[in-house]
């Protein structure tokens, strides 16, 4: 196409060739989608959330479709950090894209342990901390719903890694800017949001919840307005780069998030519907910039007119 539009962005010290990443849990470990999408074209791959040891996850049914969205209660099933580094990372290293490890733990120690492991594995370009999970050692309170816990877990991880550190926020809180500020003060390099919104669905014939876990996380186009608002709120309340996530299906959705203040975006559920959607979004961003005579995509970030 021979245009000279600069799509690159720098997030937390990671240079991305474009602002489009695939969201954790919606792209496996890359292999699953390699036959369907040009992985070299992606800004980054965020891998399925990893814990120190493998997790089985929740009993099925784990997914149910809702209006313009879906609920999932996968329960963070994953192969564990060790197996990831041995069996999946070599595959990802073959591609010219950035690999960001999404991770979580039951305790602050587990978070730190994983961060250390990632630091010594070449080929991992950054970390994304999922703090939407309960702290088993302290009353099962979700890390990401409490600003003090958020501060403690993020600062502990910060002390254990030099890798770029993104903290991914849960939307299931009263004021997301409070949590964002705690993460920023604790040393995060960037903030990504949103994780899934808590929700449920019931079968009216059997009167049973449609998910075995009763509740799950809502994703897809249905959550976009909520995500957009939260991205806007967070972007104006902290200085760190913000990554927008939630219901992005098209390049137009991505632009909306960037105008609201996001420096980059992650595409989740949309991958299920069209595995090549990210390629289309990247092409769309380029075309948009061309049509609007925008030289560098970063110019759009935070350009909202109010």
């Amino acid at each position: 196409m021979g245009r000279d539009i600069d799509l690159s962005v720098n997030i937390a010290g990671i240079n991305l060739k474009n602002p489009v990443m695939v969201a954790s849990g919606t792209f496996g470990y890359g292999e699953e989608y390699a036959p369907y999408v040009n992985i070299n074209k992606l800004g980054a791959i965020i891998v399925k959330g990893l814990s120190l040891t493998p997790r089985n996850g929740n009993p099925p049914p784990r997914i149910v479709e809702t209006e313009a969205g879906m609920l999932n209660s996968i329960g963070l099933q994953n192969i564990g950090m060790d197996t990831f580094i041995k069996e999946k990372l070599p595959f990802l290293k073959k591609y010219d894209t950035k690999v960001i490890v999404n991770f979580f733990g039951d305790s602050i120690d587990e978070y730190c342990e994983i961060a250390k492991m990632a630091g010594s594995a070449p080929g991992i370009h950054g970390l994304e901390m999922n703090i939407s999970c309960p702290n088993k050692q302290e009353g099962w309170l979700e890390f990401g719903t409490n600003s003090d816990l958020t501060f403690r877990v993020v600062s502990a991880v910060r002390k254990n890694t030099n890798l770029p550190l993104i903290v991914k926020l849960s939307p299931n809180v009263t004021d997301i800017t409070v949590i964002a500020r705690s993460a920023a003060e604790a040393g995060a390099d960037a903030i990504s949001l949103i994780n899934t919104l808590s929700g449920m669905a019931i079968d009216i014939e059997t009167r049973r919840p449609k998910l075995a876990n009763i509740i799950g996380g809502l994703s897809g186009p249905a959550i976009k307005p909520v995500a957009l608002k939260m991205v806007w709120q967070v972007a104006r309340s902290i200085k760190l780069p913000v990554i927008g996530i939630g219901g992005i299906m098209t390049y137009k959705d991505s632009i909306e998030f960037m105008i609201a203040g996001a420096s980059a975006v992650q595409v989740g559920t949309a991958n299920f519907i069209d595995p090549a959607v990210t390629e289309k979004i990247i092409d769309g961003l380029e075309l948009y910039c061309e049509q609007k005579s925008i030289k560098a995509i970063k110019e759009i970030t935070g350009s909202i007119v109010t």
């Binding site: 399925k48 996850g57 099925p60 997914i63 479709e65 999932n72 299920f272």
Partner: peptide
Amino acid sequence: DKNMACGTGACLGCVVKVKNRDSRLY
């Protein structure tokens, strides 16, 4: 037959419990 989202093994939504031979539960 299970509800599916991705159909490619990426979302882990369509699992079934298996007899634990190679340590995988699902």
